[in-house]
């Protein structure tokens, strides 16, 4: 009898907990999504509502003025095109480098004499960086300044992604590559025709990292490009939405604030457009990507 009663009491408490837990988790998820929706709502609202801080998640006084104004900003689209080129070029180069480095390093030292030497070269580059200025001087001296290569080559070797992929390759059964070798395939054929097709989940995750990384990076653009005409999108946005809001903080006078409000719809429109590619790629690669992170961080 006692046991049944106890169970019953626990169930009530449990039910209350579950309701609260459910609400809490959903609210947290909403809190992660809200800022994106907020920006979209701001970009679609009339400026008088934006001014008074009345717009939350639903646009008020729906209008497309901000997007029309944006069409006049030629540089926004030039920069977006530079970013698109950068993402595609960067994806090809980074993935090539990552694959080429991962396969040899996924071999055991007994199968690949000299592996340990290479491993240390890669690890040390992770532990110690030369710093901003020495790297800048090399990029300048190799003639990359103001070219798209400055955004790609200095960061082409991403050791953390190499580690992810080579761990994935290591986890494949040895018999697979042994069978390929018995069938007469060399390392190149084994890599391209046997190993890579098996690494699809990991490759998908890493491609997502690489693309998002290139799309989101603003720093390389801001130091290696001397003219704003060569800026990739995030660097351009940084000059548009960040530098400007700083002056607003520094000079808190009413006129500046009024100007800010008038422009804030356009700012929001730019921010929202810059987020769209991420929001589009996200659902497709998301599944692979969860696998990819988990595999890389908690192996075994």
């Amino acid at each position: 009898m006692f046991k049944i009663k106890r169970n019953y009491r626990e169930n009530t408490a449990r039910r209350v907990f579950k309701v609260f837990n459910y609400c809490f988790c959903c609210l947290t998820a909403l809190l992660c999504l809200a800022p994106m929706i907020h920006v979209m709502a701001l970009s679609l609202s009339a400026s008088k509502y934006v001014n008074s801080g009345m717009v939350l998640l639903v646009p008020k006084g729906l209008q497309l003025t901000a997007y029309k104004d944006l069409l006049a900003k030629e540089q926004f689209f030039i920069s977006m095109w530079i970013s698109v080129k950068r993402v595609l070029l960067g994806l090809v180069i980074n993935m090539t480098v990552i694959i080429l480095a991962s396969y040899p390093l996924s071999k055991r030292s007994s199968e690949f004499a000299g592996r340990q030497v290479y491993v240390w070269i890669f690890i040390f580059s992770m532990l110690f960086g030369a710093g901003l200025i020495p790297t800048y001087l090399i990029v300048a001296n190799t003639g990359l300044l103001n070219t798209i290569w400055a955004l790609i080559l200095p960061g082409a070797v991403q050791v953390s992604n190499i580690i992810l992929l080579q761990n994935f390759m290591k986890a494949l059964p040895d018999e697979i590559s042994e069978a390929a070798f018995i069938d007469g395939a060399g390392h190149w054929r084994t890599l391209t025709q046997v190993i890579l097709p098996l690494c699809k989940p990991s490759l998908a995750a890493i491609s997502l990292f690489v693309m998002v990384g290139h799309w989101n990076d603003w720093f390389a653009g801001s130091i290696y490009m001397q003219s704003y005409k060569d800026y990739p999108l995030q660097t351009y946005l940084q000059t548009q939405i960040i530098d400007w809001s700083k002056t607003d903080i520094e000079y808190m006078d009413p006129e500046m604030l009024a100007l800010k409000a008038a422009q804030s719809s356009t700012r929001s429109a730019q921010m929202f457009l810059a987020m769209i590619p991420i929001l589009c790629v996200y659902p497709f690669l998301q599944k692979h990507f969860t696998k990819g992170i988990v595999m890389g961080s908690v192996k075994g």
Partner: peptide
């Protein structure tokens, strides 16, 4: 996955 430029803004 959203850049800090946009997030900061």
């Amino acid at each position: 996955f959203i850049s800090w430029v946009i997030m900061a803004s």
